[in-house]
């Protein structure tokens, strides 16, 4: 698939009737078959950028050029499940009635929720809810998935499982992912490319060429972490 091209994107919100600029003319090109991580501190505009790409919000100026035949899926910070639907029905939510039942069963197995297919969101833990949301996104055969700090509310261990799941999905389907996080370790673990967002602009662009499993405690990744911390001006 070709690239997603963002050109001079600006977005402001109104705070106390005054314009508050969040994105100040961002331009970049993203490979839609890789994992691109947008990293930055809280309030730097990461989520806004993702919402603009998803079409949930309109930019004040600038353009986003999508590749042909793109099918965008999105996973939010919260699971956002429909409380009146079971886990399985949430996964198939919005699919045509003749959806592939085998695929849904396989997805339930992938996210480890086979035994909870008929449970309601209120009966699931936070991790299970987020896994359901992941399965819902994957059920749609999206070729680009936008993930907005999807694992931020999860505990360390569940987050690790979910991160491995993302890598498995990427390896199996070559689905492109734009992943927003403020967690540097998560970025190092997942990213083919890290875009650092600061004060409404992309200030650094780091490509991580690494095949196979990553160990972020090796010297190379520790160096990268230092580089990112310096870019974020965190001592």
């Amino acid at each position: 698939m070709s690239d997603l091209i963002i050109n001079n994107l600006t977005k402001s919100y109104r705070v106390n009737n005054d314009p508050y600029p969040v994105l100040k003319g961002i331009s970049c090109t993203t490979d839609c078959s890789a994992i691109t991580v947008i990293l930055g501190k809280s309030g730097c505009g990461k989520t806004t950028l993702l919402r603009l790409i998803s079409g949930l919000e309109e930019p004040d100026a600038g353009t986003i050029k999508y590749p042909a035949n793109i099918n965008i899926g999105m996973m939010f910070q919260e699971a956002r499940l429909m409380p009146w639907l079971t886990c399985e029905k949430n996964i198939t939510f919005g699919l045509p009635p003749n959806y592939d039942k085998e695929k849904i069963r396989a997805l339930l197995t992938t996210v480890g929720l086979t035994n909870f297919a008929h449970a309601y969101p209120g009966e699931l833990s936070g991790g299970m809810q987020q896994r359901t949301a992941l399965a819902r996104t994957l059920a749609r055969d999206s070729n680009l998935i936008l993930m907005d700090e999807p694992f931020a509310a999860l505990d360390y261990f569940t987050r690790q499982i979910m991160q491995k799941e993302v890598l498995k999905i990427k390896a199996a389907s070559h689905t492109g992912i734009i992943f927003v996080t403020h967690n540097i370790d998560e970025a190092l673990l997942l990213a083919d490319r890290i875009l650092i967002l600061k004060d409404g602009n992309i200030t650094s662009d780091i490509t991580i060429a690494c095949q196979g499993q990553r160990d972020i405690l090796t010297a190379r990744f520790i160096d990268l972490k230092r580089q990112i911390l310096a870019a974020l001006q965190i001592k």
């Binding site: 939010f76 956002r80 429909m82 009146w84 939510f93």
Partner: peptide, 25 residues
């Protein structure tokens, strides 16, 4: 509104949002 955004991302029309999200909610 967060659930409505899910519908938006899934490409629901306004009447589909009404039927599938707003009414059950």
């Amino acid at each position: 509104k967060k659930l409505l955004e899910v519908g938006q991302v899934l490409g629901f029309s306004k009447s589909r949002q009404l039927q599938s999200i707003m009414l059950p909610y």
